[in-house]
Nucleic acid binder design. Sequence first.
DNA 1: CCCAAAATGATTGTGCACAATATAATTGTT
DNA 2: AACAATTATATTGTGCACAATCATTTTGGG
Lengths: 160, 160
Amino acid sequence: MTDEGRWEDQVLALDNQTCFALYAANRAVTALYRPLLAQLGLTYPQYLVMLVLWEAETSQDMVKVSFLGRRLRLDTGTLTPLLKRLENQGLIWRRRDDGDERVVRLGLTEDGRNLKAQARTVPGQLLCSSGLEPGRLASLRDELRSLLEQLEEGPSGESP
Amino acid sequence: MTDEGRWEDQVLALDNQTCFALYAANRAVTALYRPLLAQLGLTYPQYLVMLVLWEAETSQDMVKVSFLGRRLRLDTGTLTPLLKRLENQGLIWRRRDDGDERVVRLGLTEDGRNLKAQARTVPGQLLCSSGLEPGRLASLRDELRSLLEQLEEGPSGESP
DNA sequence: CCCAAAATGATTGTGCACAATATAATTGTT
DNA sequence: AACAATTATATTGTGCACAATCATTTTGGG
């Protein structure tokens, strides 16, 4: 019967909130990446962009900014300056499409392609330094993905 | 036997990475909060600070900046300007401790205390607009908390 | 007491995130 | 062909996050 037991306050308790756990865990994981990615000269969002470009390397068509945005759920206000920094580092190039002058095509430079070899060691190092079981991580990933899916599909009205 | 099936590239595949799921889910949830908190004139980190202050309201001793930092895992570079904004909004006050001039004490103003009533509706609205089951959320929260705990406790060497 | 070390915040600088707005090119309609 | 609507990116401004550095105060050892 203590005062802090009131249910009205329980819903506001920091420790009860999944969202705070998500917020704190995300920053903790990013902090784990930071020293590893620093060796590659990348921040975590820059690393994500490079992942997409490395994935798309095999496909024929060059990547557009809008494709990165859809893939990473980031808008141009975030991507444009980030991509300019990657370009200044010599990891990527940016060029207006010849056919459609609105779109900017992106691609890897020689340095950008070569960085992939070093990046391959990152997931393993991270897993190791975190001391987490791969199985638990995978199930957490699936849980987060289905949450993300639900948030993106039906955020508002559900009337069929 | 396609080229993209190579295991060296699988570890770099965006969709396989728990960390990206965490990153994307965190931003999606924050985006859900944004319109709700805008009605209170708060951002999500500001809301978290207010949660801690509302929790501490019942306890005797006034909150220090360092306490907020430990609770939310944020440093003063983030908190000082954030707290100044809350002070400018009239929700909190900041004052140097009389006994120890190094510490800054924080407390709620009348407006800050009154805002709690409106804030109580936020978790329910969020749950509703997300369409998620409370049970799944709670288990996700526990999973994230144990992950956070593990990351914070033993980030490096594990020799006993 | 005196001075070095530690504790506590503040400041500065860089890099995301995102809302709002702007700009330019393309498309569709007439 | 003219023009409205759409598409794709860029710009501006605000607010986190965090590293690095600084300033002040307190504390502890000699």
